[in-house]
Simulated assay, not measured.
Amino acid sequence: MSDTAKRPPNPYVVLAVASVLTGMGQVINGQAARGLMMAFTALSLAWVTYNLTTPDHSFVGRYAGGLMIQAIALMDAYRVARFRWETWHQTEQPLR
């Protein structure tokens, strides 16, 4: 089973991309709708928390809702990529 077309992306690449762009880790994993949902939710919650806080709050405090969704999307993208990567490697092992 050495078909490279079915090889999943490296989980560390997915982690790196997902840490920079919210929802793109899901897109790389083949879950475009989920990635769009994560990105839209992060933007929406960032906007809400920005408008509910005052200028006296820190950057993290002003965008806490969006950063929370960013963290959830990051963990989700890595978890799915790691699961797919390990499953693919187990099926590549020759039978004993």
Results as ranks from 00 to 15, higher is better:
47 W>R: 14
49 T>Q: 04
45 L>I: 07
3 D>Y: 09
95 L>A: 14
80 V>H: 07
5 A>V: 12
37 M>P: 05
65 G>H: 01
3 D>H: 10
65 G>S: 02
48 V>S: 06
84 R>G: 03
28 I>F: 02
68 M>F: 12
56 D>F: 09
67 L>C: 01
11 P>N: 01
21 L>N: 04
67 L>N: 00
93 Q>S: 05
10 N>K: 13
32 A>C: 08
66 G>E: 03
89 H>Y: 09
30 G>M: 06
30 G>W: 04
66 G>W: 01
94 P>A: 09
61 G>R: 02
40 F>P: 08
30 G>V: 07
53 T>R: 04
33 A>Y: 03
78 Y>L: 11
54 T>I: 11
44 S>D: 12
76 D>H: 09
68 M>I: 13
31 Q>D: 12
72 I>L: 11
81 A>P: 00
27 V>G: 00
49 T>S: 05
55 P>C: 08
19 S>G: 15
89 H>F: 08
50 Y>A: 15
8 P>M: 02
92 E>T: 13
10 N>R: 12
43 L>H: 11
77 A>F: 03
26 Q>W: 02
69 I>V: 10
66 G>P: 00
93 Q>R: 14
55 P>R: 13
47 W>A: 15
64 A>L: 10
69 I>W: 00
16 A>Q: 07
1 M>Y: 12
85 W>M: 02
46 A>K: 05
96 R>A: 13
78 Y>G: 03
89 H>G: 10
85 W>G: 01
89 H>I: 13
71 A>D: 05
42 A>Y: 01
49 T>A: 04
52 L>D: 09
77 A>W: 00
69 I>S: 02
62 R>M: 06
46 A>E: 03
76 D>A: 09
22 T>F: 05
28 I>T: 06
22 T>G: 06
71 A>F: 07
32 A>G: 08
71 A>W: 03
26 Q>S: 07
29 N>I: 03
80 V>K: 11
67 L>F: 06
50 Y>G: 12
75 M>Y: 08
11 P>Q: 00
15 L>N: 05
23 G>H: 00
31 Q>C: 10
49 T>C: 06
91 T>R: 15
8 P>S: 00
58 S>W: 10
40 F>L: 15
40 F>N: 13
19 S>E: 05
80 V>A: 12
73 A>K: 03
27 V>T: 09
88 W>L: 02
89 H>S: 12
91 T>E: 14
65 G>Y: 01
70 Q>D: 11
7 R>S: 11
79 R>Y: 12
60 V>A: 13
17 V>R: 02
63 Y>K: 04
13 V>W: 03
30 G>L: 07
94 P>L: 04
53 T>H: 06
12 Y>L: 11
33 A>D: 12
15 L>P: 01
29 N>C: 03
68 M>A: 14
47 W>P: 09
61 G>P: 05
70 Q>K: 11
14 V>Y: 00
10 N>W: 09
5 A>Q: 12
21 L>A: 08
49 T>E: 08
41 T>Y: 03
87 T>Q: 14
17 V>Q: 03
74 L>C: 06
6 K>M: 10
58 S>H: 04
94 P>F: 00
44 S>M: 15
13 V>I: 07
2 S>Q: 14
54 T>P: 05
59 F>Q: 10
32 A>N: 09
83 F>E: 15
20 V>K: 08
76 D>M: 08
68 M>Q: 06
1 M>N: 14
67 L>G: 01
89 H>V: 10
14 V>N: 01
44 S>C: 15
